[in-house]
């Protein structure tokens, strides 16, 4: 649900998302890899979406990634982002394969972004929640 103040109300995290966030708080961006078929995935879930095995291992990502696509918000859909427009939201693909929604920080709007632009991890926090943002590398 969207609050009326600047607090972003996120859904109650699953146990796997809590694990992901705890590792990210320690500076480690991680993903899950299936013990059986070795598929790698994000967002966190407790069965392999490829072979459906419940057996997986957390791995640390290198932090290297590339741009898949991006958008620029010119108006905020939530008060928490009102003073940040224009800001980008970017789909990034980790060197290890999994993809995530993120932001590229340290640039104005989306300046310098193109398909396959190389990126490097920049862990930040949004309220109490650690977030995996990226910088141009």
């Amino acid at each position: 649900m969207i609050g009326t103040n600047s607090q972003i109300d996120l859904p109650e995290p699953s146990p796997d998302l809590t694990r992901f966030r705890n590792r990210l708080s320690a500076g480690r961006l991680s993903f899950q890899r299936c013990d059986e078929c070795h598929d790698a995935w994000l967002p966190p879930r407790d069965h392999c979406p490829h072979c459906l095995s419940p057996a997986f291992t957390w791995e640390d990502a290198s932090g290297r990634a590339r741009v898949v696509s991006w958008v620029v918000y010119h108006r905020a859909f939530h008060p928490a982002f009102a003073d940040r427009v224009p800001y980008n939201v970017t789909v990034v693909e980790l060197a290890e394969g999994p993809r995530l929604i993120s932001n590229v920080v340290g640039i104005s709007a989306a300046d310098g972004l193109a398909i396959d632009t190389p990126l490097a991890l920049a862990v930040e926090t949004e309220g109490d929640v650690p977030v995996a943002r990226f910088r141009l590398s």
Binding site: L10, P11, Y73, R84, V89, I101
Partner: peptide, 8 residues
């Protein structure tokens, strides 16, 4: 969860 990135 991606609301934390301003994804609305």
């Amino acid at each position: 969860d991606d609301a934390a990135y301003g994804w609305f």
